[in-house]
Computed example of a mutant assay.
Amino acid sequence: MPHRSSRLLRATGAIAALALLTTACTSNEPASQETTNTDPRAVSSNDDPGKEVVIGFSGPESDHGWLGAINSTAVAEGEEYEDVTLRVAEGTNDPSMQISHIETFINDGVDAIVLLPTDGAALTKVATQAMDAGIPVVNVDREFSSEFAARTTILGDNYGMGVSAGTYACNLVEENDLGGDAVVTEIAGTDSLPLTQDRSDGFKDALKECGQEVDHRVAGEFTVESGEQAASNLLQAVPEIDIIWNHDDDQGVGVKAAFDNASRDEFFFIGGAGSKNAMRWIQQGEMEATVLYPPTQAADGVRLARLLAQDKGMSDLVQREVPRRIVLNAPVVTEENVEEYLPLGFES
């Protein structure tokens, strides 16, 4: 069944030039099968073997493709360095269990901790205890409620995802002469989550730049089942759509099933997060684009934790200290650059 994007002009625009700041490859496969970025790194001594360090890593339960990739790429990154011993706690969605993991790391005297908290506020106290014990903490994705709880925070850009998706949607409107009559719709994630609100705000703000707005919006729960139900509701309510942005590619498996069941493909379909499924659909002409939310954040966290534990800085900066806060980019993956980004995708 041909997708509209295979029949109409594709928009490229400035979005295609956005650069991904992450450095390790991603997948939801076991860590032993992981590969990391083999491109040349900055010319410096940072990657040379140094002082042996022990890094504790605590991440989420792998009940979602993106979360699975967070864990597996962190483990793979630790294996890249002969001077790193990575102690990996069992993935969990229970804040109490994760607190006990961090307490164990503190008692064992690890050199650094990389932590994607199940709940940033709930883990703030124990992370602060680690910092007070002289153990640098790298906070990943979900922020603590105190600046004193982490040496460095590394984040994806949820608002930026929305901006990237909205800017790309504006390009589609212009390139395909859709004009003011374009019907732009949105399938969000869980509405109660700040990350969902940020993505929607960014999308809405970017659309304003080209005089567009979200005409219809539904929300799922970041699951295949909720995605299919939300998309079915949208299709039933709106007989003709020009653009759909779905926040999450794991949820997008259900969204795409709803499209196929309804035999609807008149619209440009834009995804979010960057799964391999989405990238294969782009290759097959069944999806227009997806916006990355890098699942390499914890892998980058491991790399930064190693630098901190070895008293090293960042060679690409004039101010060599590891920054206090790093926000990763949210590039758009299209037919033109999908081959470049496919190795970074995760399996849903």
Score class of each variant (00 low, 15 high):
residue 144 F to M: 15
residue 124 T to E: 14
residue 117 P to K: 11
residue 120 G to K: 04
residue 173 V to A: 06
residue 158 N to C: 11
residue 135 I to R: 00
residue 115 L to Y: 01
residue 84 V to C: 06
residue 98 Q to Y: 12
residue 91 G to C: 00
residue 143 E to A: 14
residue 116 L to Q: 08
residue 141 D to W: 04
residue 110 V to N: 05
residue 189 G to W: 00
residue 153 T to M: 02
residue 155 L to C: 02
residue 115 L to P: 01
residue 151 R to P: 01
residue 97 M to A: 14
residue 82 E to Y: 00
residue 84 V to S: 08
residue 165 A to F: 07
residue 174 E to W: 00
residue 153 T to F: 02
residue 150 A to K: 14
residue 161 M to S: 15
residue 89 A to S: 14
residue 121 A to L: 09
residue 160 G to P: 11
residue 96 S to I: 09
residue 85 T to G: 02
residue 181 D to T: 10
residue 101 H to A: 07
residue 123 L to F: 04
residue 169 A to F: 13
residue 125 K to M: 12
residue 149 A to F: 05
residue 124 T to V: 01
residue 179 G to E: 05
residue 153 T to C: 08
residue 87 R to D: 04
residue 116 L to C: 08
residue 112 A to L: 05
residue 140 V to E: 00
residue 147 E to Q: 12
residue 129 Q to T: 08
residue 171 N to G: 14
residue 155 L to F: 04
residue 118 T to M: 01
residue 159 Y to N: 06
residue 186 E to A: 07
residue 148 F to D: 13
residue 179 G to L: 05
residue 167 T to C: 08
residue 133 A to L: 08
residue 93 N to E: 06
residue 162 G to Q: 13
residue 113 I to G: 03
residue 136 P to K: 01
residue 164 S to M: 01
residue 99 I to N: 09
residue 152 T to A: 03
residue 147 E to L: 09
residue 115 L to K: 07
residue 116 L to E: 10
residue 120 G to L: 03
residue 162 G to P: 07
residue 105 F to S: 02
residue 101 H to I: 08
residue 82 E to R: 10
residue 106 I to V: 05
residue 165 A to S: 08
residue 132 D to N: 14
residue 124 T to L: 06
residue 141 D to A: 13
residue 142 R to K: 15
residue 84 V to E: 05
residue 137 V to C: 12
residue 143 E to F: 05
residue 147 E to G: 06
residue 162 G to N: 07
residue 94 D to S: 03
residue 163 V to A: 07
residue 153 T to I: 10
residue 177 D to H: 07
residue 140 V to C: 07
residue 119 D to K: 00
